[in-house]
């Protein structure tokens, strides 16, 4: 698993569902994804490769399928991913073997519970 798959696991998908999802994404048929999500994926890909070509029409497509506020959320998140990838690529940090985003094993009974998940990447 890479970090995105680990985070999909934290979001509630099991190993098989994650693999199916990623395999579909990697292929040429996105029909299983809702139209709004497909629009977001296409926006994110264009923004990743040619950010200077993102124009009014691209943002408007997101607004059309997500509404104004949610479209801004998608734009923000899509931009956020470029912070994360630059750090990962800059340092070539090795991937962890375990899902480091999952809660660690339960602490002894007298200690406060661990956070539900870690943030950061």
């Amino acid at each position: 698993m890479g970090h995105t798959e680990m985070l999909l696991a934290v979001a509630g998908l099991d190993t098989q569902k994650i693999a199916e999802r990623c395999e579909k994404l990697a292929g040429d048929d996105w029909s299983d994804f809702p139209a709004a999500e497909r629009a977001a994926f296409l926006f994110a890909r264009k923004q990743a490769l040619t950010p200077w070509e993102v124009g009014q029409a691209d943002v408007q497509k997101l607004v059309h399928v997500f509404g104004h506020e949610r479209a801004l959320d998608v734009v923000w998140w899509s931009c956020r991913c470029h912070f994360m990838t630059r750090v990962a690529d800059g340092f070539q940090i090795p991937l962890e073997r375990d899902n480091v985003f999952q809660s660690p094993p339960a602490p002894p009974a007298n200690n406060p519970p661990a956070p539900k998940q870690e943030s950061g990447s």
Partner: peptide, 21 residues
């Protein structure tokens, strides 16, 4: 946001940039 959607979008970006992380 929906976490599955967020992370799927992240997957699309890592794939686009060939960032295998």
């Amino acid at each position: 946001q929906d976490r599955v959607f967020e992370e799927t979008l992240f997957w699309v970006i890592t794939r686009s940039l060939q960032c295998f992380y």
